[in-house]
Amino acid sequence: MYRIIAGKWKAKKIAAPRHFDVRPTTDFAKEALFSILENTYDMQSVAVLDLFAGIGSISFEFASRGTQDITSVEMNPKHTSFLNSTASELGFSLQVSVQRGDVFDWLKKFRNKKSFEIVFSDAPFETEEKKYQELISLVLKNKYLKENGVLIIEHQSRMKLDHPNLTDTRKYGNVSFSFYRPNEESSIETTEE
């Protein structure tokens, strides 16, 4: 179970069926994250990509705060069904587009189709570091981020995700958020070759 912290559905509790194997972002970490984001972005005008969306803790937090363009990618069919039914129940169906698929395959397939101000990833905690690095690379190299965009990776605090584009890591207990800026040099590199 998780609750929406702010916006239209503030304090609304969302409970997933018992047999779902999910780990929603804690309220404490989510509150801190959105405090950072709201100081940088106008929630109503950003486009958001939520990778490993689970049961929608992050997607619905954005929607409750007025974000109109949210793409949620999740592989588990039970979770995508839950995402769709919850979006409908809360009146978010027009704001939240649920895409069922493996995140890595999805990122390879849809590259250069659309870019976002915020890309958020909450991969399973047992994900290996090399898979995180692949994810960072797929998002940055395929221009999923707008110029002013940010990629945020939620991961276990004991894991360090170093990368040249890493700008900050914030720790909240055993959960950390690492922030990455888009590539500025990528367009220069290709013209020099």
Rank of each mutant, 00 (worst) to 15 (best):
R3H: 09
I4V: 12
I5M: 09
A6G: 06
A6H: 06
A6D: 02
G7I: 13
K10S: 15
K10W: 13
I14G: 06
I14Q: 05
I14C: 03
A16K: 14
A16P: 14
P17M: 05
R23K: 02
P24F: 09
T26R: 08
T26L: 10
D27Y: 05
F28T: 13
L33F: 06
S35Q: 13
I36Q: 12
L37Y: 11
E38H: 15
E38F: 13
E38G: 14
T40V: 13
M43P: 08
Q44L: 12
S45V: 12
A47I: 09
L49Y: 01
D50G: 08
L51H: 02
F52L: 07
F52V: 03
G54D: 08
G56F: 00
S57G: 02
I58N: 04
I58R: 00
F60V: 01
E61C: 02
E61Y: 03
E61P: 00
G66T: 03
T67K: 00
I70E: 03
V73D: 00
E74V: 02
E74F: 00
M75N: 15
K78Q: 14
T80D: 06
T80V: 07
T80K: 02
S81C: 10
S81W: 08
L83W: 09
S85H: 09
S85K: 10
A87H: 07
A87L: 12
E89Q: 14
L90Y: 02
L90V: 06
S93I: 10
Q95V: 06
Q95E: 05
V96T: 08
S97K: 14
D102C: 04
V103K: 06
W106L: 02
K108A: 07
F110V: 05
R111H: 15
S115N: 15
S115W: 06
F116I: 07
F116T: 04
V119D: 03
S121T: 04
S121H: 04
D122P: 05
A123G: 09
F125M: 05
E126C: 07
T127D: 04
T127E: 04
K130I: 07
K130V: 08
Y132C: 10
Q133A: 06
E134F: 01
L135S: 06
I136P: 00
S137Y: 06
S137E: 11
S137H: 08
V139H: 01
K141A: 08
N142H: 09
K143N: 10
K143V: 04
Y144I: 04
L145F: 10
K146L: 12
E147Q: 12
N148V: 03
N148Q: 10
G149S: 03
I153K: 00
H155R: 02
H155L: 01
Q156M: 15
S157R: 11
K160M: 07
K160R: 08
K160N: 07
L166C: 09
T169K: 06
R170L: 15
N174C: 14
S178A: 14
R181D: 11
N183K: 11
E185Y: 05
S186Y: 07
S187T: 13
S187F: 11
I188K: 14
E189K: 09
T190W: 08
T191K: 09
